[in-house]
Measured scan of single mutants.
Amino acid sequence: WKITIYDQENFQGKRMEFTSSCPNVSERSFDNVRSLKVESGAWIGYEHTSFCGQQFILERGEYPRWDAWSGSNAYHIERLMSFRPICSA
């Protein structure tokens, strides 16, 4: 599993790669995730830290803005603060 997060939209700004769970992006000096690329595996992104709040399934691909992973939710969530890989047995 591999995911790359960015602190600006369209894959700009600070970037960081992960191959395992991140319970709080702010502990990695990110205020928020504004864009991301899922390089391999599937991940679950969460609205809040500690894997809480609205969940987003993140499959392999590029997500240049928050609405790319938020989709058409009843209330739009511009925040992604934690994530972890989906492990299959």
Rank of each mutant, 00 (worst) to 15 (best):
R15M: 10
H76S: 12
I5H: 01
F30P: 01
Y75D: 15
P64Y: 04
S70D: 09
A42V: 15
S26V: 12
W69T: 08
Q8F: 02
H48R: 13
N24E: 03
Y6E: 01
G13N: 01
H76Q: 11
N24W: 02
L80E: 01
M16I: 10
E78D: 15
I57F: 08
I57S: 07
S20R: 09
P85V: 06
R79C: 10
S21F: 05
R15Y: 14
E9W: 03
N10D: 06
A74N: 13
I77M: 14
Y46I: 00
C22Q: 04
V25E: 06
C22L: 05
P64E: 06
W69R: 05
R28H: 09
W1N: 15
Y75R: 14
W66C: 14
Y63V: 05
I57K: 11
E59M: 08
S29A: 10
N24T: 03
R84Q: 14
F30M: 09
W66L: 08
L36E: 07
A68R: 08
Y63N: 04
Q12H: 11
F11L: 05
S50N: 13
N10S: 08
S21V: 05
T19K: 09
G13R: 00
I57V: 13
T19Q: 08
G61F: 02
A89E: 15
T19L: 07
I5G: 01
A74R: 13
S20Q: 12
S29Y: 09
S21I: 05
S70N: 15
C22S: 01
Y6M: 00
I86K: 13
Y46K: 02
S50A: 11
V38L: 02
M16H: 08
S35K: 03
K2A: 05
Q55M: 06
P85A: 06
I5R: 00
R28N: 09
D67M: 10
S50T: 06
E27C: 08
I86N: 15
A42T: 14
G53W: 02
Q8E: 09
F83P: 00
F56C: 15
V33L: 03
M16D: 06
R28I: 12
E59Y: 13
F56E: 07
G53Y: 01
N24G: 04
A89T: 15
M16V: 11
V38T: 01
M81W: 04
S88Q: 12
F51A: 01
F18D: 01
E17L: 07
G71W: 08
A42G: 08
E9P: 10
R84Y: 04
A68G: 09
R65G: 10
S72Q: 11
E39K: 13
N10G: 08
R79F: 07
N32L: 10
T4S: 06
S72H: 11
G41P: 03
S70I: 09
S72R: 13
E27I: 05
S29Q: 09
S72I: 05
I77K: 14
A42I: 12
P85N: 04
R15N: 14
F51D: 00
C52M: 15
R60Q: 15
G71S: 14
N32D: 09
S29P: 03
A68S: 12
F18H: 04
G41C: 03
E78K: 12
T4P: 05
E47P: 06
Y75M: 13
W43T: 00
M16P: 03
V33R: 00
I3S: 00
S88T: 13
Q8M: 07
T4I: 14
N10I: 03
P85C: 05
